[in-house]
């Protein structure tokens, strides 16, 4: 599964993408796994209310299951237009 980061989430983590071999059950568990890796992940995910998540390119939430999912993305609230 690919995990993508955009905007300041990407900058804090230091790269745009990770590949996860065996995804955990939910987005929240994925965040916990990432945070336990390195401090920069913990810094990026410190305040989940400041983050949005997309699962297979659809806006989703942190309790979403990851079974069969190919792509998860984390980013700040969007500022288009």
């Amino acid at each position: 599964m690919d995990v993508l980061y955009f905007a300041w989430v990407r900058e804090r983590i230091g790269h745009p993408k990770d590949c996860i071999e065996t995804p955990p059950g939910t987005v929240r568990e994925l965040v916990e796994d990432l945070c336990s890796r390195e401090e920069r992940y913990a810094a990026a995910f410190a305040d989940l209310s400041a983050l949005r998540v997309a699962v297979d390119q659809q806006l989703s939430d942190f309790d979403a299951p990851l079974d069969g999912v190919r792509e998860v993305a984390f980013f700040p609230p969007m500022t288009g237009g």
Partner: peptide
């Protein structure tokens, strides 16, 4: 503005900031 995945960053002489 709020549901299409775009993010704006303002780059000025004294640094750059993501638009909140």
């Amino acid at each position: 503005k709020s549901r299409a995945p775009f993010w704006k960053k303002e780059v000025a002489q004294d640094g750059a900031d993501w638009v909140a």
